[in-house]
Deep mutational scan, measured.
Amino acid sequence: TLFEALYDYEARTEDDLSFHKGEKFQILNSSEGDWWEARSLTTGETGYIPSIYLAPV
């Protein structure tokens, strides 16, 4: 399942991933609670993103 960003997000740590509204992600690991490891389909970068900023596509 792909997810789309509902809002912009600016990374706060080196493990976080910055993204823009409308960016799409492949989720790599969603077992860490509210922060999911994801790969951006726009940039190819991976990192942790807040799941509350996402909606399934």
Rank of each mutant, 00 (worst) to 15 (best):
Y9G: 04
E14Y: 09
F25R: 00
A55H: 10
L6F: 04
D15W: 15
Y48C: 10
E4N: 03
E32P: 09
T46H: 08
G22W: 05
G22S: 04
T46A: 07
E14D: 13
L28Y: 05
S30I: 11
S31G: 10
L6Y: 03
L2S: 04
E45G: 08
P56E: 09
K21W: 04
E37C: 14
A11P: 05
Y48V: 08
T46G: 03
E10P: 05
F3W: 15
S51Q: 08
L54S: 01
D15S: 14
H20T: 13
S40W: 01
N29Q: 07
R39I: 13
K24D: 01
L41Q: 07
I49H: 00
Y9A: 02
A11G: 11
E45F: 10
T43F: 02
T13N: 14
Y7Q: 11
T13W: 13
T46N: 05
S40K: 12
G44N: 08
S18D: 04
Y9R: 06
R39T: 11
F25H: 00
Y9K: 04
A5H: 00
W35I: 10
R12K: 14
L41E: 06
P56G: 05
E4I: 15
D8W: 05
S40N: 11
K24H: 11
E4P: 00
T1W: 12
E45R: 14
I52E: 14
T13D: 12
L6A: 05
I49M: 02
T46M: 09
N29T: 08
I52Y: 14
E32Y: 12
I52S: 15
E37M: 15
V57T: 08
Y53E: 02
Y53H: 08
E37I: 15
I27Q: 01
S18M: 03
L54R: 00
A38Q: 00
L41N: 04
T1Y: 11
G44F: 08
D15E: 13
S30T: 13
Y7S: 10
T46R: 10
A55D: 06
F19Y: 03
G22H: 05
E4Q: 10
L6M: 11
G47P: 00
T13R: 15
T42V: 11
Y48H: 08
Y7G: 07
L2M: 10
D34Y: 14
Y9M: 04
T46Q: 10
E32D: 14
V57Q: 05
K21S: 07
S40E: 02
D34K: 08
A11Q: 07
E37K: 11
K24S: 05
R39K: 13
K24E: 05
T43Y: 02
P50F: 11
H20A: 11
F19R: 00
Y48Q: 08
Y48M: 14
E23I: 01
P56Y: 06
G33K: 14
W36M: 05
I49V: 15
N29Y: 07
A5T: 03
D15C: 15
T46K: 10
D8F: 04
N29S: 11
L17S: 02
Q26P: 00
Y53F: 11
E23W: 06
I52W: 15
W35L: 10
T1L: 14
I49E: 00
T1E: 12
L54H: 01
I49D: 00
I49Y: 01
R12C: 14
Y7P: 00
S18E: 04
E14L: 12
E45P: 00
S51A: 13
D15G: 15
Y9P: 00
A55F: 10
Y48L: 12
S18A: 07
R12Y: 08
I27G: 01
Y48G: 04
A55W: 10
K24N: 06
L54A: 03
A55N: 07
D15H: 15
S40V: 04
A11Y: 03
T43G: 03
Y53Q: 05
V57E: 07
G44Q: 06
S30Y: 12
I49P: 00
E14R: 11
E10W: 09
A11D: 02
A11H: 06
S51T: 07
K24P: 03
E32I: 12
R39M: 12
Y7K: 08
F3S: 02
L2E: 06
E32A: 13
N29F: 07
E23Y: 04
E14I: 12
D16Q: 15
D8G: 07
D15Y: 15
P50V: 04
E37P: 06
P50I: 06
E23A: 06
Y9L: 03
P56K: 07
W36C: 04
G22A: 03
H20P: 05
A55V: 14
A11E: 03
D8V: 03
R12G: 08
S30M: 15
F3T: 02
D8M: 04
N29L: 06
L6G: 02
R39L: 10
E45A: 13
Y7C: 13
F25W: 01
G44L: 07
E14K: 13
E14N: 12
I52N: 15
I27S: 01
P56A: 09
G22P: 00
G33T: 13
K21Y: 05
A5M: 01
Q26E: 15
S51R: 13
E10V: 13
P50E: 08
K21M: 08
A55C: 09
T13K: 14
D8A: 07
E37S: 07
A11F: 03
L2Y: 11
E37L: 15
T13I: 07
D8Q: 05
D34C: 13
E23Q: 07
D15I: 15
L6H: 03
W36T: 02
Q26C: 13
R12D: 10
L54C: 04
Q26T: 10
Y53T: 06
L54V: 11
L2P: 04
E14T: 13
K24R: 14
S40M: 05
S31D: 13
L17G: 01
A11W: 02
I52F: 13
T43D: 02
D8E: 07
W35S: 07
A38P: 00
G22R: 03
L6N: 04
A38M: 07
W35N: 07
E32T: 13
A38R: 00
V57G: 04
D16H: 15
G33P: 15
Y53N: 06
P50R: 12
D16N: 12
F19W: 02
